[in-house]
């Protein structure tokens, strides 16, 4: 398990990184935490000629307060998400989900941006980002674009990010007092990707569910937004009956790949079960 040869670049500014990407085009590949890319390179599934390491660009790290938004630098590592009081205060779903990713060492290196951009349906942040209505700020030779998480994912390892662009920041609207949230992830063991997982963010207006996002991990070619499941709950008083209907709607959109974690039927059922559990917990939290 030895990676192939490549030229290594460690720009210290975003502008340099973007310039390098522009220079090398298809031959260039951005290195974030490296815990997906380096294993793929060791297996020689990926053999980029130029590796552009973003780890030395300090501006891309950290969690900042943007008033009614939280601004997360793309190169912020999972453990720094978990350690960020601001996130626990304004968008606790993100650190709560981060705790369920990989293991302590990997979380010291793996970044939210890498997880978001890799396009692997097994990654957890895509569903989280969809659930929290995140916006991705990307910078390329043409300047900056802002892309909503919902719609960013086009297929497995395929997103709206252009080869010459770098994700720089993730903007997440702060939760309200009546926001409830949960991420339920079934995995075989610590460090594993999800067999299935479900992220739920909702708001209660009294007992009525006034807003809801439901997104699923690893049960389709990308993270999936379960819109029909959301529609079941929206504007309703959420009870077990509706939760079950929503879970069924979530299951209906699942199209998982069979692997050693389970067959299509199991993963689909687990997406349903994770959704039930996430909705229940989110409702409970929204009630305060």
């Amino acid at each position: 398990m030895i990676p192939g040869k490549f030229e290594y670049h460690a720009p210290e500014t975003l502008a340099d990184a973007v310039a390098l990407l522009g220079q090398y085009g298809e031959d260039g590949k951005v290195l974030a935490g490296g815990h997906s890319l380096l294993p793929m390179m060791k297996l020689r599934f990926a053999e980029p000629a130029h590796l552009i390491d973003l780890n030395r660009i300090k501006d891309l790290r950290g969690v900042r307060d943007g008033g009614n938004k939280v601004l997360i630098g793309a190169m912020t590592v999972e453990n720094d998400l978990i350690a960020a009081d601001l996130l626990w205060a304004k968008c606790p779903l993100v650190p709560e989900a981060a705790k369920q990713i990989a293991d302590p060492q990997v979380r010291n290196r793996g970044t939210i941006g890498g997880d978001v951009c890799h396009g692997d349906p097994g990654n957890d942040h895509p569903a989280i980002m969809i659930a929290v209505d995140a916006t991705f700020v990307v910078v390329g030779p043409e300047g900056e674009r802002k892309l909503p998480a919902n719609g960013f994912y086009l297929g497995t390892y395929w997103t709206q990010l252009e080869e010459s662009e770098v994700l720089t920041e993730i903007q997440i609207p702060a939760f309200n007092d009546n926001t409830g949230w949960a991420y339920h992830k079934l995995k075989r063991k610590t460090g594993d990707w999800a067999t299935a997982a479900s992220a739920v963010v909702l708001e209660l207006d009294g007992d009525v569910c006034s807003r809801v996002n439901i997104a699923l991990t690893n049960v389709g070619p990308t993270a999936l937004k379960a819109e029909e499941a959301e529609a079941v709950l929206a504007g309703q008083v959420v009870d077990e009956n509706l939760i079950e209907q929503a879970a069924q709607k979530a299951m209906a959109i699942c199209d998982p790949a069979e692997d050693l974690r389970g067959d299509v039927e199991y993963k689909t059922h687990m997406a349903g079960e994770m959704t039930r559990r996430a909705i229940r917990q989110a409702v409970q939290r929204a009630r305060g």
């Binding site: 398990m1 290594y8 460690a10 490296g34 815990h35 380096l38 294993p39 060791k42 390491d53 780890n55 453990n79 293991d103 302590p104 060492q105 990997v106 010291n108 290196r109 460090g191």
Partner: peptide, 28 residues
């Protein structure tokens, strides 16, 4: 060699990391 076992764990700038999934140049 796939960052699962932790036998290669080192402490880099005060953080536990797996040295099988770090390039040496990154430790510069």
């Amino acid at each position: 060699e796939t960052s699962h076992c932790g036998a290669c764990t080192v402490d880099l700038d005060g953080r536990s990391l797996k040295a099988c999934t770090l390039l040496a140049v990154q430790a510069d």
